[in-house]
Amino acid sequence: MNLGPLEIGLIILAILLLFGYKKLPDASRSLGRSLRIFKGEMKGMKDDDVRAKDAAQTGPVRGEIVAPASPPQDDLNARLQAEAASAEAHAAELRARADQARAADGPR
C-alpha cells in the first residue's frame, strides 16, 4: 500500500476539515500525552516481568512482601468456562427478546 503525495494531501485536508486548524494542536498534544503514558505503562509492565523473573530465581528478599499463590489453572479454566456459558445464555435470551419484539412490530 503506497501512499502518494496526493493521497497524503487529501488525508491532511480531511483532518483539517474535521478538527479545524485551531483544535489540531490540542488534539496532537493530547495524542502525544496518551502515547507517552502508554509507553510508560508498557515499560512498567516489562520492569515488573523482569523483577518477577529475578524474584523467582533468587527467592524472596528479607522483608519483602510475597504475593499469595495464584489459584490453580484448572480452577481458572472452570471459572472462565462458567462465565462463557453464562454469557452465551444471556446472548440467547437477548436474541429471543429481539425476535419477539420484531414479531410484535409485524411485517413492514
Rank of each mutant, 00 (worst) to 15 (best):
G20L: 10
G32A: 09
I8W: 02
A14F: 05
K22T: 03
M45T: 11
K39C: 02
D26F: 11
D47E: 14
L35Y: 06
L35F: 13
L18Y: 09
V50W: 11
S34D: 04
F19L: 00
E41W: 10
L17N: 05
S34C: 01
G32H: 02
G9H: 04
A14K: 12
D26E: 08
V50I: 15
M42E: 14
K22F: 07
L35D: 02
G32E: 04
R36A: 03
E41C: 02
D48K: 14
L31H: 07
K23E: 13
L18Q: 05
D47H: 10
I12N: 08
K23G: 00
G20F: 05
S28M: 13
R36P: 01
L10A: 07
I11E: 04
I11S: 01
A27W: 12
D48H: 11
M42Y: 10
G9W: 07
S34P: 00
S34H: 06
D26C: 04
S28T: 13
I15N: 06
A14I: 00
K22Y: 12
I12P: 00
L31G: 09
L16G: 14
I12K: 11
L17Y: 11
K46G: 08
R36C: 00
L18P: 00
I37N: 06
F19K: 03
P25G: 03
L17C: 09
L13A: 05
L13W: 07
K46Q: 15
V50K: 14
D26H: 10
L24A: 12
G20C: 06
L31C: 03
L16W: 09
I15P: 05
L35N: 02
L13M: 09
G44M: 11
K22H: 15
L24D: 13
F19S: 02
K39D: 08
A27T: 08
D26M: 03
D26S: 08
D47T: 12
I37S: 06
G9D: 01
I11L: 11
I37W: 06
Y21F: 14
G9V: 01
K43Q: 15
L10R: 07
L31S: 06
S28D: 10
G9R: 08
M45Q: 14
S30L: 15
G40P: 01
S30R: 08
D48S: 12
G9M: 06
D26G: 02
F19T: 00
